[in-house]
Nucleic acid binder design. Structure first.
Lengths: 235, 235
DNA sequence: GCGACACTTCGGTGACCGCCGAAGCGTCGC
DNA sequence: GCGACGCTTCGGCGGTCACCGAAGTGTCGC
């Protein structure tokens, strides 16, 4: 007797979606949380447009992506935060065994390692620094499985961010830990992480560098982070 | 410029390990946390022994499994809790879209839905009931990303379980949430979940039914859970 | 020792799947 | 309208991979 009905085939089907280098590259690109056109993804992955079409069909059928058609363009994005989390987790497990701990600064092209978005929250040295500060100040609890404290809820409320209301809109965790692939330490994700990132972009604390995931911290952002969390912008 | 060195191929390689029905079935079977022989897995998955050998090689090379040779037997098990978590997470995401919420009792063969192990912690209605009770009593915090409170640490200490010492032995989270595939709600995993499960088996609160993952709760176990957590054994 | 047994290695076979280019279909801009 | 453009469908090619049976290696038990 199999212990559960059809878990094996289902698991294999889902894993199969990510088991191809081209599709994996597409999903990792989409981790920036934005919508890409089919052509952009094809060029990014280095395949013909017709090939990309087939891959996108599979990813959409499999529920990992959603599409949105606009004129002659077809925009695709990750189907939701759960999918982003899944890919991020899986990708973290697939990381190389011994990370070259010493000269890391030289790799991962400076700006990205300094501050970037990870789907819809903050990552890089900025993300982990903010997370560390929130832990120190008792706004966040738990060395790995994060939970927001009452003080943490107040802190967000003072910023004008209504987390309970945001959390009620979906089944998403209020606070979640996401493994940072440059820092190899957790940073804040979940509803709280997304709200903070959105706030940082809305208020101009952080500004996107070009069209990628990299961010730079504005002078106002530096001041706000220092005052609110005692964070000095990462070098 | 690719945003990161070689994440795509690595992700694809890892996913590829689980993208085959036979390998997926093997990994799901190994989620019970025990060591299986190659022949057992071959029969379980319904393939020839030679085929199973090949699959096990791949899974071991890929770091998902470890082997242990004893005489003419080759025992394999999951390489660690991180791997168990990964497979459990992935499998939860692969679940069928609309769970038949009504007649669930009839499916998932009664005993397993009532109480079972999930790798090395407690799952099923028993697992979620214990988790709910710990949340209610303030031993655990966070609706999804769990963290143990001070009161929770004391509670474990009173049972004679030294969690900080256990946690220091590895990089494993103290408390973690694991999605229960029969209840569709989280239960307690991580160091704390494993310690509690081990305690329950050591003290005879729970006893394995046959050789599978299913458990039954002993009379002493019922009494202990009622006194310690106010949990009445799930029907 | 001698079989019984667990597992492994080795060809061979067939299916699946990713890839491309060419041709077709819609949309946009002049 | 008319091309330019983005995307899609189709056919064909080639590589990869899961599978098996048969033969081989090591271990256990008598």
């Amino acid at each position: 007797m199999t212990p559960s009905p059809h878990r094996g085939p289902r698991l294999a089907r889902l894993a199969g979606l990510l088991a191809d280098e081209t599709r994996a590259a597409m999903c990792l690109a989409l981790l920036d949380g934005r919508a890409w056109t089919a052509g952009e993804l094809a060029r990014y992955a280095g395949v013909a447009a017709s090939t990309a079409t087939g891959h996108l069909h599979k990813l959409i059928d499999g529920g990992l992506l959603t599409e949105e058609r606009q004129g002659r363009h077809r925009y695709v994005r990750l189907a939701g935060p759960q999918v982003a989390q899944l890919i991020e987790d899986l990708s973290a497990h697939a990381a190389p065994p011994p990370p070259p701990r010493t000269l890391r600064a030289s790799s991962a092209s400076g700006a990205l390692a300094r501050a970037r978005t990870c789907y819809d929250h903050l990552a890089g040295r900025l993300g982990t620094a903010i997370t560390d500060a929130m832990l120190e100040r008792g706004l966040l609890q738990g060395s790995t499985g994060f939970a927001l404290t009452d003080a943490g809820m107040d802190w967000f409320a003072k910023l004008g961010l209504d987390l309970p209301e945001a959390a009620a809109r979906g089944r998403r965790p209020m606070a979640r830990s996401c493994l940072d692939w440059t820092e190899r330490r957790p940073h804040l994700a979940g509803v709280a992480g997304a709200a903070l990132c959105r706030h940082a972009l809305d208020t101009g604390w952080c500004i996107r560098i070009g069209s990628g995931r990299a961010l730079r911290v504005s002078p106002e952002g530096e001041r706000a982070l220092r005052e609110l969390l005692g964070v000095t912008t990462p070098v």
